[in-house]
Simulated scan of single mutants.
Amino acid sequence: MSNTNDFNTMGRIISGIFFTFIFAISGYSLSLVPVFDRIGPLANAILLAIIYRQIFGYPELFRKGIAFSSKYLLRFAIILYGLKLNIEVIFEDGIGLLAKGFVTIAVAILLTLLLAKLFKADSEISLLLGIGTGVCGAAAIAAAAPIIKSKDEDTAISVGIIALVGTIFSIIYALILPFLPISDTQYGVWAGLSLHELAHVALAAEPAGEEALALALLAKLGRVLLLVPLCLILIFWVKNRNVTRSEERTNITFPWFLLGFVAMSVFGSYVLGNHVSVTIEVMDGISFITTFILTSAMVGLGLNVSLKDVKEKALRPLLAMLISSVVISLLMYWIAGV
């Protein structure tokens, strides 16, 4: 009987994982369609998952597999995300950009939270949006969410907002590029210091040329590197907050997947990066797998979104995040042009 139950449980987990894969594939397919190609597969997959939930309800049959994707595949994707980060290049050429990236993160989080308090917005969503805006979008939100004990619904809403707003900003950047009184390299630094996702930075900086794109990605990866110390600060903050609120005391477990993130960063920087036989195609393949797994994991979060409360919960944090994004854009434009 026990073996039968274990077999049934494993079957439900596997079928649930495949269920999220179907949405991820659909998100990639939708990203080939004009307009939706600007949003990206991750946001498309979450959008499809949210629509499915509103029409058909939560797929209870696949709950265990979906939960597995949301928890474990998500952490695995973040670990693989570390391969995108070349530590050696950052320390050789990007120390100044690293310091400027710290400014971006500090302003994004503090200003978003300040505005959220002023607008009486949902503090948890606002914090996730501030972290996503300051660091690296969905990956940063996914890393921070378990530390602050974020609800799946709030995490999914935050990821969706980041993807949408970041896409709009990157398109605006590309459109105004010909009219800006700064050099292409300065433009690249500006994009890397101010835009939300790594993909948004690439989208905005590519029209400015290879050198601008390289600087943009370097500036952005410096912000990604700061994700680890930021998460450690969050752990310290959450523990102290729980001490002062005895009714909310919980054990904050260390996010061990961040050590995997660091390990993959070191491995990618000093092993794969110096190995001639590792081709660009191989790295592109790893990048695709990472994004696909992250997309599949986010589907589970999207399926937990009920639109009944979204309007009330999301609009004010969105406004706070929009204002913060504009302020960061203007501030980093000035810094990049100095």
Results as ranks from 00 to 15, higher is better:
residue 106 A to H: 00
residue 119 F to E: 03
residue 128 L to V: 08
residue 45 A to G: 09
residue 81 Y to L: 15
residue 92 E to C: 11
residue 92 E to H: 15
residue 122 D to Y: 01
residue 61 L to F: 10
residue 126 S to H: 05
residue 121 A to E: 00
residue 57 G to E: 11
residue 73 L to F: 15
residue 38 R to A: 08
residue 38 R to M: 08
residue 59 P to N: 06
residue 120 K to Y: 01
residue 39 I to R: 06
residue 69 S to W: 10
residue 76 F to Y: 13
residue 108 A to P: 00
residue 117 K to D: 04
residue 113 L to R: 12
residue 120 K to P: 00
residue 35 V to C: 00
residue 118 L to E: 05
residue 104 T to C: 13
residue 53 R to I: 00
residue 59 P to S: 02
residue 82 G to V: 00
residue 60 E to D: 14
residue 106 A to M: 13
residue 123 S to A: 12
residue 96 G to E: 10
residue 84 K to I: 00
residue 120 K to S: 04
residue 96 G to H: 03
residue 102 F to Y: 06
residue 122 D to P: 13
residue 83 L to V: 03
residue 102 F to R: 10
residue 90 I to L: 09
residue 49 A to S: 15
residue 51 I to D: 05
residue 85 L to Q: 07
residue 89 V to D: 13
residue 116 A to N: 05
residue 62 F to S: 02
residue 110 L to A: 10
residue 51 I to K: 07
residue 111 L to A: 02
residue 66 I to F: 09
residue 129 L to Q: 12
residue 40 G to R: 08
residue 126 S to W: 01
residue 41 P to S: 13
residue 99 A to Q: 09
residue 73 L to K: 15
residue 92 E to D: 09
residue 39 I to L: 15
residue 37 D to W: 04
residue 122 D to I: 03
residue 93 D to P: 01
residue 112 T to C: 08
residue 45 A to R: 06
residue 98 L to H: 04
residue 35 V to D: 00
residue 79 I to N: 04
residue 72 Y to E: 12
residue 108 A to V: 02
residue 75 R to Q: 14
residue 36 F to L: 14
residue 90 I to T: 02
residue 39 I to G: 03
residue 74 L to M: 14
residue 104 T to K: 09
residue 83 L to T: 11
residue 129 L to R: 08
residue 107 V to H: 05
residue 35 V to S: 06
residue 59 P to H: 11
residue 45 A to M: 11
residue 127 L to V: 00
residue 67 A to M: 13
residue 63 R to E: 14
residue 99 A to W: 09
residue 64 K to M: 03
residue 66 I to T: 09
residue 68 F to G: 02
residue 126 S to T: 10
residue 80 L to G: 08
residue 43 A to R: 08
residue 113 L to Y: 01
residue 90 I to H: 09
